[in-house]
Design a binder for these strands. Structure first.
Lengths: 127, 127, 127, 127
DNA sequence: GTGGTCTAGACCACT
DNA sequence: GTGGTCTAGACCACC
């Protein structure tokens, strides 16, 4: 379910975080539901346990999951429509847009990009 | 002319790169024109020379500036509408948008953000 | 009678211990009286037998209950006003208060908290 | 400045967190000021770098410090009167008090404890 | 020099 | 079995 790009400059634990959030937002994992164990996940993704653990520590701090010793990791009730995740996403997007604008990217180009991204998304939804 | 935010998590050399590109795109520096020397700039910004040097090495690799041994750094003819800068900006923006979307940000929210950013930009242009 | 919060980060066996002590202090179970068997309790609470067993082993070590081979678990005579339980509680509270104070919590805030907790308690007593 | 109790059941990184917060609240470290490097601290406390790092990751997530690659760790502007730290402290205290009460600790005993703790604090202030 | 990421592996606590 | 903590040590990025 989770795909890691080892070549990416985005840290692996960030990639895990992002994809877990995505899976929760897509409804693959629902609040209260148990997630795969960090050991199972680290084995599946061929990563060190600590790398996966790091992702889950941050997901827990962000209120997306909670972990119970000896029992496992579960999706928290506040996972969907999570304010911290939302606000972070908006802030990052703002920085990225400002950076693009200062490099000469026009509003038209951004709209074209958005159209192609959201068109792509609709296709996925049909599946 | 260049403002560095020491508290930002964006590397200082990236901030320098970005602002030089911005100044060129705004027409403050024109192709062929000489830029402040690395030493002058590092003194003015109170930064380590190596940090400024790194920014200029990368700007040269991107085709934004060229340096002439013993004479200084100049804005290259390919600085405006530079393909590499443009493509990098688009690629980064695409990643940021996809990340935001996967965290539940809607098209409407992105448009609202864009409107506020471009409104802000117009105000600046009047100055 | 015993309510377990599976979502709490307090270990389940600690929750069992705490609630047995509470029930004894409230007079629900009196010294000499027999407690529900470990198996019955684990079935009722839908918990692993080992988890309940661990709670009772520790309660026995603390002098709150005693178990008779093949007959069951009973409230010990030293259960109420038990020194070890009392001292542990005081020690834990001291640690918690010191921790709060070092994080900038004032005496006033603590008093407000205490008032609301003891007010709540009185209401419960009326039931 | 920081004292670690290796015997304590409180994780070392939590002890570091707590003491850094305390030092900031006491005014030993002020907003904007640089903290000792994680390497220097780990050497001084004879701990692994990662243990200290873990403490700082959480302090950063809580808005108490911020770290800049290649530069160091600094006290953030939101460190004092930090809502997250404050709310966590209150919540923990509430849990501790409720636990003590259920073990038969009376309001009088709690007040006695508070008096002795705050009396102790005043003595420290005079130094 | 600074912090940031990742691995390998140990040991403990809880169910 | 689960997660939680800690160590030792490597390699990278930034200043």
């Amino acid at each position: 379910m989770i795909i890691i790009d080892l070549q990416s400059r985005i840290p692996i634990y960030e990639q895990i975080k992002e994809q877990v959030i995505k899976l929760v937002n897509c409804g693959v994992y629902k609040p209260g539901e148990q997630l795969p164990s960090i050991r199972a996940l680290s084995k599946e993704l061929k990563l060190n346990v600590n790398t996966v653990k790091r992702a889950f520590i941050e997901l827990e701090a962000d209120g997306v999951v909670y972990s119970l010793q000896g029992r496992g990791v579960f999706v928290s009730e506040t996972a969907i429509n999570n304010t911290k995740v939302h606000d972070d996403a908006i802030r990052n997007l703002e920085i990225a847009v400002n950076s693009a604008v200062s490099k000469g990217i026009s509003r038209e180009e951004i709209d074209t990009l958005l159209n192609s991204i959201f068109k792509e998304g609709e296709k996925d939804d049909r599946n």
